[in-house]
Design a protein around this nucleic acid. Structure first.
Lengths: 127, 127
DNA sequence: TCCTTAGTTCAATGATTGTTGAACAAATGA
DNA sequence: TCATTTGTTCAACAATCATTGAACTAAGGA
């Protein structure tokens, strides 16, 4: 069954540049976008970001990204599948996302260590 | 005499993406960048932004833009010449500034009216 | 059924933000 | 010299932000 109550996302045409900029002007959220850009088309779950911040903080930041129109969040069981809204952002602000991602390639968050993870195996169902 | 004490600007290599994003994630500052991008190569003075916010606020926002490495500010008499750091930003984050400017073309600030201006004659010395 | 996994909600907290107005400084022009 | 123009500094303030920990829900698996 894939019929979960959807979370609210802004329509493409309502995505605001200054809101997107303000949202990405945060190291943690920029790092989330970086990981998403390198994860393949399947997206990631919130749990895969816990190397960047605490579980509660990730909930907060992913909400911000969703409300700004940067990511799509889809409930799947107890998880949330998070994907970049690539096409929508490209349509609205051509070239913007690519330039961000290119400049983000070598960024990382240091100093956070919590709930240690095996190194981010992508799209695997269960440990 | 053109020997005024220079204001502090970050070196090109120290310009941080997340700081630039956070700085541009503000409607007023984004509007300043928009005006600068359309003003020709000579830059603008702070006084020419007073259609966007109060004098004190402009001082604050222009400082933010300077500290982030987005603009260059040069004292000229009682004025400050503000220019975009185009080359530096292009070198550091290729394609980024252009995408912002393109998406900013039709933006404007509404609702602010103060010290009404003649419509932005560029590079004129005195009324 | 019970336990685990995955994520959310909530209140509290400290930090940062953007705006205002009054007072100020410096360069210019008359 | 004196007044004007241009912009800065400062303290105050409200608003927003990011983080924390405890308690919670919901879906799956054993």
């Amino acid at each position: 069954m894939t019929a979960h109550p959807p979370l609210p996302h802004p329509d493409t045409e309502r995505i605001s540049l200054s809101t997107v900029l303000a949202t990405l002007g945060d190291e943690t959220r920029l790092a989330i976008i970086g990981e998403l850009s390198r994860c393949g088309g399947l997206g990631m779950t919130c749990g895969q970001f816990t190397d960047l911040a605490s579980k509660t903080s990730i909930t907060y930041h992913v909400s911000k990204l969703r409300e700004a129109g940067v990511v799509n969040v889809t409930p799947e069981g107890t998880r949330r599948r998070v994907t970049l809204r690539r096409d929508d952002l490209d349509h609205r602000f051509p070239g913007f996302l690519d330039s961000i991602i290119a400049s983000t390639a070598d960024l990382h968050i240091d100093g956070f260590e919590d709930e240690p993870n095996e190194p981010a195996e992508l799209s695997r169902r269960n440990p």
